[in-house]
C-alpha cells in the first residue's frame, strides 16, 4: 500500500462558545477559516494544537492528540500565531535548519540568521515566524492570519510560496483569514464561524 500522507481530523471539538466542531483537512489542502473577531477562531486553533483544554478529539492520520505527549503533538501540528514571539538575541537561535530555498523564496538570504531580533520589522517577524515553524518540519499547519502585517507584494509572495509548499509536502493546513480575495486565492474550502458552529461558504 502506498504511504498515505496524514490528514488532520477534528471530531466534536468544543472550546469556548464553539460546540462539536467537525472538520477534515486533507493532506495538501488549505482550508480557510473566517469569522468576526471574538468568534473563537484563534481559540479553535489553540485547541487543535492542544494549548487549551477542550472537549472532543483530534487526529493526525491515525495518531490521536490525547495519546501522545503534548510537545510531540505540537511539533507535528504546528500553530503559527498572528503575533510571533522571540526570546533570544539573534534570529538563528530560534531556528533549526531552514527548508532549502525557503529563506530566498520569502525575500531573505542566509545572512538574516545573524540579524538581531530587536531590529526586525513586524513584517519581517511574521515571515520569519513562518520559516521558523517550517524549519521544525511539522506535518500539519495552523496559520493564524499569516499575512496580517505584510504589504500587498509580500502577501502574494508568501501565499504563492505556501501554496506550493503545502502541495509539495502534502501538509494539511487550517488558515485563519479575513480578506475574501486572499481566501479565494489560497483556499480549497472555506468555512465561516456562525454562532457555535462552522458554515461552509461557496
Amino acid at each position: 500500500m502506498p504511504y498515505q500522507y496524514p490528514s488532520l481530523r477534528i471530531e466534536d471539538v468544543s472550546v469556548g462558545d464553539l460546540r462539536n466542531i467537525r472538520l477534515d483537512v486533507h493532506a495538501g489542502e488549505i482550508v480557510c477559516l473566517s469569522g468576526a473577531s471574538g468568534s473563537g477562531k484563534s481559540r479553535l486553533l489553540r485547541a487543535i494544537a492542544d494549548l487549551e483544554a477542550h472537549d472532543g478529539r483530534v487526529f493526525l492520520g491515525d495518531r490521536e492528540q490525547g495519546a501522545v505527549r503534548g510537545h510531540c503533538w505540537r511539533g507535528w501540528v504546528m500553530l503559527v500565531p498572528a503575533e510571533s514571539q522571540w526570546w533570544a538575541e539573534t534570529v538563528a537561535e530560534h531556528f533549526l535548519e531552514p527548508l532549502p530555498g525557503s529563506l530566498e523564496a520569502l525575500g531573505f538570504d542566509r545572512s538574516v540568521l545573524g540579524w538581531q531580533v530587536s531590529r526586525l520589522s513586524s513584517g519581517e517577524k511574521q515571515r520569519l515566524a513562518l520559516l521558523r515553524a517550517l524549519s521544525h518540519r511539522p506535518e500539519a499547519l495552523l496559520l493564524d492570519e499569516p499575512t496580517a502585517n505584510l504589504d500587498a507584494e509580500s502577501t502574494r509572495l508568501t501565499e504563492d510560496w505556501l501554496r506550493n509548499l503545502v502541495r509539495r509536502e502534502w501538509l494539511p493546513v487550517l488558515w485563519v483569514a479575513h480578506d475574501p480575495e486572499q481566501i479565494r486565492r489560497v483556499a480549497q474550502r472555506h468555512y465561516r464561524i456562525m454562532g457555535s458552529g462552522l458554515e461552509r461558504q461557496p
Binding site: 504546528m78 510571533s84 514571539q85 511539522p138
Partner: peptide, 16 residues
C-alpha cells in the same frame, strides 16, 4: 509577564 513567549515556545514543539 512572559506567558506569550512561553506559549510561543510550546507552539514550536518545545517541552515544558
Amino acid at each position: 509577564r512572559q506567558r506569550a513567549v512561553v506559549e510561543g515556545r510550546l507552539m514550536l514543539g518545545q517541552t515544558w
